[in-house]
Design a protein around this nucleic acid. Structure first.
Lengths: 203, 203
DNA sequence: ATCTCTCTGTACCTGGTGGTACAACCGCAA
DNA sequence: TTGCGGTTGTACCACCAGGTACAGAGAGAT
């Protein structure tokens, strides 16, 4: 009874990963169960055996993302311990977008934009993900402030939100324009602004 | 033959406005022709008489938006002639979002995020809209620079893109969190950054 | 061998989506 | 008054989305 269990878990993961990729590419609304089933080379049986509905799958995809972020296993590293790490956080997202030839935005932003009043669960999942990311960024700013590296006008939470929002906006514009240029200059502006809070000149 | 013409144009506009509102509320993908037809109190006959397809309607909705922006007839004023106007530009968008109780994002961002490879026309429409807005913002920065009010590090186009991207990101986060707090602090950070380019102290 | 349990494949169903066909209508011109 | 243009209403349709039902298949436990 163990071998089956393993095989089942693999199938389940294949579905989640295929779905995550399709959601990132075209959003959840535009992705049908059939499409996910084909991409994951499974069948309708499996799909509804492992997930109670399409919405349930979206939820689990987001849980998986959240888990990866918490464990530091995601494509973009959210462990910020230095100014350099922060630059890399911005840069990794730009690079990720470039690797898809600027046809995709942020996986979370993409899903976030299509939530409506009926997707309360999904909205909360996304909210939680951004909350976790924000806390990781804010923790860095708090530490820097404790070290006396940040001016006292700097509010760690506000700066963390600013990082996330400018990154989201930049990626969205990059996707719409299908060009990385704006994304890069916007990230630079954001970094310049953040730098202005540093007491010691950096870079 | 003139009265009919007027009535037809009215019907057409009713459809466009109903569609624009629904697209803003829930995106284009989640909005069916039937829903638009009901909201505009028309019939299937009219719908396909005035628009060749749903995509055609989306295109015309965006054309209408673009036209309003160019004519200065839109809810948010894009005519920036002073620092105060710029602040109002940011603020008007936050207020608009608040008026929908933070359940909606930017109408253009919402549509932009659901664009895929098959929506090239729509993507270009959106790209054009943002280009026009960017130029209006950039023109302001160029004028200020000519007056010697901006440092020479300030790049008008880059700053214009930065304004748009941070606003987009802020609104998206506001929609996901269903809270205006982040939006407001992010806008403040963006304004603080812009202010840093001004030679004379403002405000 | 049989029972059981999870896993897997296929057939099918209901409702909605996007769209067409077509008939009628209205105001006016000749 | 018939004709003609733009306008409007209703019936219909093919397709696909999301989901159910159900029948096996494989691997243990007995």
């Amino acid at each position: 009874m163990r071998r089956q269990f393993v095989r089942g878990a693999e199938t389940r993961l294949r579905i989640i990963h295929s779905a995550a990729d399709l959601f990132h590419k075209q959003g959840a609304r535009a992705t049908s169960p059939d499409e996910i089933i084909e991409a994951s080379r499974t069948g309708k049986g499996q799909f509804y055996h492992y997930f109670k509905s399409k919405e349930g799958l979206i939820h689990e995809v987001l849980q998986t993302h959240l888990d990866e972020i918490k464990r530091g296993a995601s494509r973009v590293s959210y462990e910020i311990n230095s100014w350099k790490d922060l630059e890399m956080w911005f840069d990794a997202q730009v690079e990720s977008q470039k690797s898809y030839e600027m046809t995709r935005g942020c996986p979370f932003g993409t899903l976030g934009n299509e939530v409506t009043d009926n997707d309360e669960l999904i909205r909360q999942d996304l909210s939680l993900i951004f909350e976790v990311v924000k806390n990781k960024l804010a923790a860095f700013f708090v530490r820097e402030k404790a070290k006396g590296n940040l001016t006292k006008q700097a509010d760690a939470e506000v700066l963390a939100d600013f990082c996330i929002a400018s990154m989201q906006g930049a990626m969205l514009m990059g996707k719409i324009k299908r060009s990385s240029q704006t994304v890069e200059t916007t990230v630079q502006e954001a970094l310049t602004h953040l730098r202005s809070y540093f007491v010691k000149a950096r870079r």
